[in-house]
């Protein structure tokens, strides 16, 4: 839409200066963010344990990563993480889009009530013990359901999603309604395809939420075979940090740092994937047709 080249022609000069500043600024921010990450990466590849900031390994070794991907006690949690993240994200998106779509119907009787009904759960909660008792009553404790189901209702995401839906021009719905489309067809054929950026970003929110979860695992699940990678990682870090008892066997510093890296790894690829859907003008194109 805007053809701009690096040029110092009059009019473009200030823009070019801005571009340059922006570039330098971005590089600086990336650097600030990278340094701590590099430290962890370097420590994960370094056989000698050192104290302080070391951005390059002294005795290079990838043993720690080998351990993570060959040791059943470490790769099983990783697989659980992947599984719960995928299932949780799909489930979460389903619930969120359903809820957001209904809440976005301005004339629906009871909409205001529904909206408040949902919102209250963001503010008020019963606390640990009652939640535990309810999950136990539903037979969900000690199953992955305790981690997947409650967390897939997320008010924050639902309100954001409704917000995105509300930006879809009303004329689209009206014409579809006139054409006799059922709400579910409008939802599937108009709303969802037009909300790809929203689906991508909120899907990402869910994915991260399920990926980073540890509290619900620790509290509602006792079978350690069901623990995900974050729980394992936390154990590695905390047991090491507060080790009183020499016999709480740890994997050592290297594996700990490698685990921190591995916990981030999948999302190196997820964002570029999600970003493909951040295409501007989807909504508008549809209106023009």
């Amino acid at each position: 839409m805007m053809s701009e080249k690096m040029s110092f022609k009059a009019g473009y000069r200030s823009r070019t200066v801005f571009r340059l500043c922006n570039g330098v600024f971005m590089a600086l921010i990336v650097l600030v963010v990278m340094i701590p990450l590099l430290k962890v990466l370097s420590d994960s590849l370094d056989k000698t344990t050192r104290y302080g900031i070391n951005l390059w390994p002294q005795h290079f070794s990838i043993d720690a990563y080998k351990t993570i991907f060959t040791n059943k006690n470490l790769y099983t949690p990783f697989l659980i993480s992947v599984l719960t993240t995928v299932v949780g994200t799909v489930l979460g998106l389903l619930i969120t889009t359903f809820g957001a779509y209904v809440l976005n119907q301005p004339t629906l009787i009871g909409r205001k009530f529904f909206s408040k009904f949902i919102f209250i759960t963001m503010i008020f909660n019963g606390g640990l013990v009652p939640t535990f008792l309810v999950l136990k009553g539903l037979g969900l404790t000690n199953t992955l359901g305790a981690v997947l189901l409650p967390a897939s209702v997320n008010v924050f995401n639902m309100v954001l999603m409704r917000n995105f839906f509300s930006q879809i021009p009303n004329s689209l719905f009206e014409s579809a309604e006139i054409d006799g489309c059922s709400p579910i067809r409008i939802f599937g054929q108009i709303v969802l395809p037009l909300s790809l950026p929203a689906l991508a970003s909120i899907g990402l929110f869910f994915a991260v939420q399920f990926w980073n979860e540890y509290f619900n695992y620790v509290m509602y699940i006792t079978d350690t075979n069901l623990y995900n990678f974050q729980v394992k990682l936390r154990e590695l870090v905390l047991n090491d940090q507060n080790m009183m008892d020499p016999s709480v066997v740890g994997f050592g510093n290297m594996v700990k740092n490698a685990a921190v890296i591995v916990a981030m790894l999948p999302f190196l690829f997820v964002y570029p994937f999600a970003q493909r859907y951040f295409i501007s003008g989807v909504t508008l194109g549809a209106v023009k047709e």
């Binding site: 509290m219 729980v231 709480v248």
Partner: peptide
Amino acid sequence: INQPAHNEYYEKVDLAFTT
């Protein structure tokens, strides 16, 4: 054997007696 995560052991003991 019920062996909760080491760092949350006493929270789980309290929870067990409560529930």
